[in-house]
Design a protein around this nucleic acid. Structure first.
Length: 106
DNA sequence: GGGCTGACCGGGT
DNA sequence: GACCCGGCCAGCC
């Protein structure tokens, strides 16, 4: 099933442990597409059920998704905060701290 | 087959 | 630190 680029994206995203995040670029790089970040975004845009898409952020460490809660907080940020991810005042998180490379959780 | 679009990235201003 | 520009990749018209 992971014959398709999309399928691999879904598997990788679904494998991200709670409290961890991955950038579009990192995912694309792992799939063999160093500059295919946009393609990863396309896969996410499909919004498959059961996929923790909110664990995928851009290289800035912020939400790229426009979806926001009624209180003004980005849905993605709110979901990550529920898992223990802390965002700063600028709405960004510590990439070096939460970025998951696919290796076992320390 | 050609061109446009999109939840991106990196570098420069 | 924030904004703009060009480049890459895959899907859809």
């Amino acid at each position: 099933m992971n014959d398709d680029f999309f399928g691999r994206v879904y598997e990788l995203v679904a494998a991200i442990p709670p409290g961890r995040i991955m950038t579009y670029g990192d995912i694309a790089l792992r799939l063999g597409r160093p500059h295919g970040g946009r393609t990863v975004g396309w896969a996410m845009r499909h919004c498959p059920a059961g996929l923790p898409w909110y664990r995928v952020v851009n290289s800035r460490g912020a939400s790229s998704v426009a979806a926001r809660l009624p209180d003004g907080t980005p849905m993605q940020q709110a979901l990550l905060e529920e898992e223990g991810v802390v965002f700063d005042a600028t709405g960004r998180l510590d990439l070096a701290r939460y970025s998951w490379t696919g290796a076992p959780d320390a």
